[in-house]
């Protein structure tokens, strides 16, 4: 036998053996990560039909009563809720068109959003959400529940909302409202 023919065969066998061993040792008992599956950003394939829109309600603040004040806005409809929900948060980030106090501090960006099966929406903001926030319980409550209410009020499939900052879970925005568990809506904070 030619060494040139034996050699690749040997190398191949060793490689297979190593792979097999790696499979046994390395692959054992690693539970899969629990990361939610990101939904693609684009609105899908181009279609000839004009885009449909729907009306949603955003919540902004007032320094008179410190409650959440509704303001309507149009968004594009999409078969995936998360795509519509992202537009809603982006509109919330953009601020009021009627001069109400912004619920999201300036400079904040929506980084990503996921909705997992049991109705929890994960909304990931850039760090300006906390860095540019004025703090104080009233301010923090208003910001947090403007986000939570905007999502739960407009999208039936969203039951609870978890706010992330820079991709990470945070204990609180600035020392008050607990962000470690998904939040339920607070309809009592909406101005009558």
């Amino acid at each position: 036998m030619d060494i040139k023919r034996i050699l690749p065969l040997g190398v191949l066998s060793v490689l297979l053996l190593v792979l097999a061993v790696l499979f046994f040792v390395g692959g054992a008992e690693k539970p899969p990560a629990l990361a939610p599956v990101p939904v693609p950003d684009d609105a899908g394939e181009d279609s000839a039909e004009p885009p449909q829109t729907r009306t949603i309600t955003l919540f902004f603040l007032s320094d008179e009563d410190n409650l959440l004040h509704p303001e309507e806005r149009e968004i594009y409809t999409h078969e995936l809720t998360v795509f519509e929900a992202k537009q809603a948060i982006e509109e919330l980030v953009r601020g009021s068109s009627s001069g109400a106090v912004a619920s999201i501090p300036p400079g904040t960006r929506l980084r990503e959003m996921y909705i997992i099966q049991d109705g929890v929406a994960y909304v990931d903001f850039s760090r300006e959400l906390k860095d540019n926030h004025g703090s104080g319980t009233a301010a923090e409550t208003a910001t947090v529940f403007a986000i939570v209410n905007t999502l739960t009020y407009n999208f039936e499939s969203i039951k609870r909302v978890s706010i992330l900052i820079g991709g990470n879970e945070r204990e609180t925005l600035n020392g008050h409202i607990d962000l470690t568990r998904p939040l339920l809506p607070r309809l009592d904070l909406i101005a009558k």
């Binding site: 603040l61 320094d63 410190n66 106090v101 912004a102 104080g136 319980t137 009233a138 301010a139 008050h176």
Partner: peptide
């Protein structure tokens, strides 16, 4: 705690 809200109007104790 001491409270805070955007603007300068909010006042009172809770």
């Amino acid at each position: 705690h001491a409270n805070g809200f955007p603007g300068s109007k909010a006042r009172g104790a809770e």
